[in-house]
Simulated scan of single mutants.
Amino acid sequence: MAQKIAVIAANGREGRLIVEEAVNRGLDVTAIVRGENKTVAPHAIIKDAFDLTKDDPKGFDVVVNAFGTWTPETFDELPREVAHVADLLAGTDTRFIVVGGAGSLLVESDGKKIALEDTPDFPDAFKGVSAAHGKALADLRTRDDVEWTYVSPAANFVADGPRTGEYQLAGDDLTLNSNGESEISYADYAIGIVDEIVTDHPHIRERISLVSK
């Protein structure tokens, strides 16, 4: 029987690609969206993420959270939304896979490891959203009642990049590809998310990261 998965914020650019990848691999996919379902998912729950109740995720094997915020006025919504969904899944066997950020990945600096977002060259324009993602991860790491996996993209997350079908799986450290770059396309990241859904060895209560080869 195909795994049943739900994708929150499925109408977003990454959400749609995750839905498409999952459907193409034969998973039973439900899009959770605020308005019209614009994905290829055959089922939809039309609801704001903050209005979801404990009944909504019942019956799903995996809930993927592709929720994002991009303005200073809404940055705080991201960790609150992740915490809200985690509360709904607490004490269940439903896995919670979170589309995360790269700013909290670790890099070497003066002989110690610091977050990428704390390095001098980290762009000011991304500090707010990076901090929001970092808070969401920090909150998840306090929880042992949720089967969560936090998935960071590479530092350069390329919306229109090609689907190569290949990527590297890494952990908390910023990892570089064969060109010495930290980069991955949205399409290859979606492959990594669905690989994590279907793997026999899931990364429960871990942060993983994905980078191109």
Rank of each mutant, 00 (worst) to 15 (best):
G161R: 05
P123S: 12
A2Q: 09
I97V: 06
G171I: 01
A154W: 10
D56A: 08
E77L: 15
V29D: 01
N156I: 14
G128W: 00
D76C: 01
K54L: 02
I97Q: 00
T92G: 10
V98P: 11
I46E: 05
T142P: 01
D139E: 14
E206A: 08
W148F: 04
G12L: 07
S109M: 08
A86C: 06
V211E: 09
R34Y: 13
D48N: 09
S212H: 14
A31K: 03
V211I: 11
T94R: 03
E20R: 09
D61M: 07
T39I: 12
D28V: 10
G128Y: 09
A22L: 04
A155L: 12
N177E: 07
Y189C: 13
E206D: 05
L169A: 09
W70F: 15
A187G: 09
H133M: 02
G91E: 11
P57D: 08
N179I: 00
V63F: 03
V19N: 07
R16S: 12
E14T: 15
G165H: 02
V82Y: 07
E73M: 14
E21F: 01
V98L: 13
D195S: 06
Q168I: 15
Q168E: 15
Y150R: 03
I193Q: 05
M1G: 10
R141Y: 00
I45R: 08
F122T: 07
A159G: 03
A9I: 12
R95C: 08
G180D: 01
R143H: 06
F122N: 08
L140P: 00
Y186I: 12
S109P: 00
E117F: 14
K127P: 00
T119D: 01
V19I: 10
R143T: 00
Y167P: 01
D173W: 05
D139P: 02
D87Q: 01
G68W: 05
T164I: 11
I191Y: 05
S212G: 15
F50T: 13
I8V: 08
Y186Q: 13
E20W: 01
I5H: 02
M1V: 12
A83W: 04
D188M: 10
P72V: 02
K58E: 14
A155N: 10
G103D: 11
I5T: 08
I193H: 10
D56T: 14
T92F: 07
L106R: 09
T69A: 12
Y189N: 11
E147L: 14
V198G: 14
E21G: 08
I114Q: 05
I32K: 02
S209K: 09
L210M: 14
E183V: 15
P42L: 01
K213P: 15
D173M: 08
A6N: 04
L210D: 11
G35T: 13
P72D: 07
E77W: 15
R80G: 07
T92D: 06
S109E: 10
N37S: 02
K127N: 03
D173L: 06
P79V: 13
H201S: 13
A49L: 10
G68E: 11
D76P: 02
S209H: 00
N179Q: 13
E206M: 05
L17K: 10
P57M: 06
L89F: 11
G161C: 05
A187W: 05
N11S: 10
Q168V: 14
I46A: 01
G134H: 02
T69W: 03
A155K: 15
G35C: 00
D51R: 10
D145W: 06
F96S: 00
